[in-house]
Each structure stands twice: as structure tokens, then as C-alpha cells.
Design a protein around this nucleic acid. Sequence first.
DNA 1: GTCATCATGTAAGCCGTTACATGATTGC
DNA 2: GCAATCATGTAACGGCTTACATGATGAC
Lengths: 232, 232
Amino acid sequence: MRYIIITMNGLDLAILGLLHEQELHGYEIRRRLRDDLGLFANISFGSLYPALSRLERAGLVVTTIDEGRAGRAPIPLTGSLGGERAVLRARRAGVGRAPSSRRSRKVYRITESGRDQFTRMLEDGAAASTDDDRGFGLRLAFARHLSPRARLRLLEGRRAHLAERLAAETARAGGGGLDPYTRSLAQHASEATERDITWLDHLIESERLGLDDSTSSHVPAPDPATTKGSNP
Amino acid sequence: MRYIIITMNGLDLAILGLLHEQELHGYEIRRRLRDDLGLFANISFGSLYPALSRLERAGLVVTTIDEGRAGRAPIPLTGSLGGERAVLRARRAGVGRAPSSRRSRKVYRITESGRDQFTRMLEDGAAASTDDDRGFGLRLAFARHLSPRARLRLLEGRRAHLAERLAAETARAGGGGLDPYTRSLAQHASEATERDITWLDHLIESERLGLDDSTSSHVPAPDPATTKGSNP
DNA sequence: GTCATCATGTAAGCCGTTACATGATTGC
DNA sequence: GCAATCATGTAACGGCTTACATGATGAC
């Protein structure tokens, strides 16, 4: 039993969220933060490694040393003369990614205590993180681990905050005396916030449908978000 | 002559930018940062006052004590330039609210050295601040103090950065394996970036027109940005 | 044999926050 | 008289960055 109290900032939460699915080593955690979540883009090692140590000291994760395992021969590294970097990339990044022998690395695995803490913090923050852009994004990225009710609270809280923000922004854009650049900036910002709100409204709506379907049961994977594409 | 080297972070730049137009006291600077610029929303006094002291020590601003003057004394701080605007601003600052005597306050005025430093930093940063959202917003808000050329560089640099960001975001949104929430988030982010780019393209276009009009002359107030409204 | 990439860390510092401390003036 | 607002500051701390330090491996 560890009673170390941990502040649990955003980075810690994000790390536990990633480890919730599978064990990873530090370098790879950084890659996923960037490529998969898009949050904490290029977090520095000066933040990452101390965070991992902290989590370990707090007993929320445990580590095992993954010594260089060249013997498994998972990837024909030198053999391919095609020089297809894409193949390596895809392998490394995606599903078929076997741990190629590199330097010995520390593999982090979440503990039961870590899972508890993660869930608690995710729910606690959902109520209060509405005014923090990254905090909200982080919570939404892990929203599948929230109960339908908590999820709805998160979305509605965020919406309320954005409505306030929009009011301030339209006031600014509408007020006189600003030079063209500042005005254009303010106008663009208010339009962006409007779209954010519309987007949230869609999420909220489909969330409500999910709630009505199965009353008071907390299924983990309810309903796909609005699927409107804009890319080829 | 002061030779104190100052790092000149965003807040310092914003303060000098506001003081560029008229002298102000600390509390009012904070209000304008929030209400007029929308940047550094609710900057804390724990940041603001030390910043002002720093600027004063560096000789970029000077202070005078504005002792409590209970008599109506309308706007004692109409600076030399931008007079007509200053009056309007001060009047509208509080609808019925003449700047009545409060506690004695320190009024900050920018020095010649401060103006030089401001301009230099604004131009220097214009080349490099493209990857910093707030840094860019700040520069654009003061873009009227930039030469048309520097302004164009600022906008184009930002555009290039956003194009990179968009590539990463569409890759994320398009890639498989994400849960609905994360995917929706990624998609929404990429759409927002697309709009940012479109907006920048309009700004760049009208900036180019301004350049063509008066070749190689650097007029301070060139061309109003695209004026398309979305609010009542 | 040297460079790029993978991999893990520490130290110093910047930029901003909250909490604390003080005080004047206006309005109820 | 008391609360709200205006007004100026200091102290402590948090989160993240850059720069520094080390080392293995594979590619050229």
C-alpha cells in the first residue's frame, strides 16, 4: 500500500491513459502522445522521464527491463534491400510492431492502483477542466473510460465555458476602435469558437441518444461520434 | 543609457504594445489585455507587476505617480500621439465611468528606448514565432507596427507552419485504430486548422494587394482585412 | 568510422500560477 | 460599517523547456 499523494497533472494522466491499453517504454510513450493523441506534442524528455519516475515512486506503474533481444529476429532489418522506409515505419508504428533489439529499455506497466487513480482523476477533472483547452482535449481523448453520465457532464461543462468565451469574443470583435488586424483576429477567433460549440452540440446529442437507449447502464463503448469527413 | 538586457517575453511585448498608444497604469493594462486583445486573458498580478518593474529597470518605461484626484479631472493621461483615439478609448472604457480618483496609482509611459526595443522585438519575432499560437496572435495584433514586408513574412511563416500541422492532423484523423472520441477530436482539429489556413490566405492576399499598390513604401495603415461577419 | 536514430536521464531556468499582504474609495 | 471594486505588490511553487550527459545499434 502506497499513500504517496500525487498531484496528477495532465501529463501523468495522459501517460496512465496510454498505459491503460498496453505496456510501453518511455520513448514510445512520447511518440504516441504526439502521433496518436496530438496532445503534448513533442513533450520533452526533461518532462517525460521525471513524470515516469514520479508515477513509479507513487506505485501507479511498475517497470521491467527489456534487455536487447536480438534473437527473436522480429523484423528483417538489414535484409530488405528495397529500402522502403515506409515498411519499417508502418511496422514500428502499427499493429505488427515487434520490439526490435535496441538498447535496454524500461517498460512501464500500469498497476491496479494506477488504474484506480486514473479513473478517479479522469472523472474528477471532467467536472473542472472545462476552462483548460488541453485539459478538455485530454479528457475527451479518454472519454471512453468515463461513465455516460460523466461524459455528458464533461461535454456540457465545456460547452458552457465556450459559450462564455464566445460572448467575450463577439464583444471584442464588435467593439469599435480596433485596427484591422486585431479585428480580423477577434472575428476569426469568435467564428472558431462558434464551430467548437456546434461540434460539441453534435457530440452531446449523440451522447444523449446513447443514454436513452440503455437507461442507467454504463456501457463502455456507446456511440460513434458524428462522422463527417473533410479529408480525401 | 541603460544596457540592461531583457529577454522580452510575450507579456513584455504586449505591455509595450499597449503603452505604444498611450500611457496606462497596471490595472488598466490588465483590463486591456483581456478585453481588447483577448491575449493573456486574466494575466495574474503576480506576473504583471514584476513584468512592469522589469521594464522600468530596463529603462523601457518610466513611471509617474498619479495621486488621488477626486475632482472630475477627465482623463489626465492623454498622451502626445494618438490623442483623439485615447479620448475615445478612455471614455468608452467604462460606460458611465469617468476615471475617478482611486488610490494613488503608477502610470507607465513608454520611452524612446522602449519604442525601439518594441519594434525590434516585434520584427525579430515575426520570423520565428510561427509555431507559437499566442506568439503569432500577439504579433498579428500589433502588425500595424510592422513593415508590409515583415507583415507578409509573419503571415506566410504562420501559414507554412499550419500546413505542417494540418498534415499531422489529417494523418491522425485518417489513421485507424482510434476510438470515436479521439477520432472526432482529431477530425475537428484538422478542420479548424484548415479554416485557419483559409483565413490566413485571405489576409495574405489583401496584404499582397497593398504591397503592389504602393511599391516599396512602408505605409503604417495599409488595408483592412477581409470583412466577412458571422455575428448579428 | 561516423552519422542518424533509439533510448534514458539530470540541471538550470523561464513563464506563469495561486496564495498572501496591504490599502483607498464608493455604494448600500 | 461593510462589501465590492480598484490598485499594487511579494513568496512560493508548478509545469514545461533547453541544454547537458551518456550510451547502444544499424546504416552508409
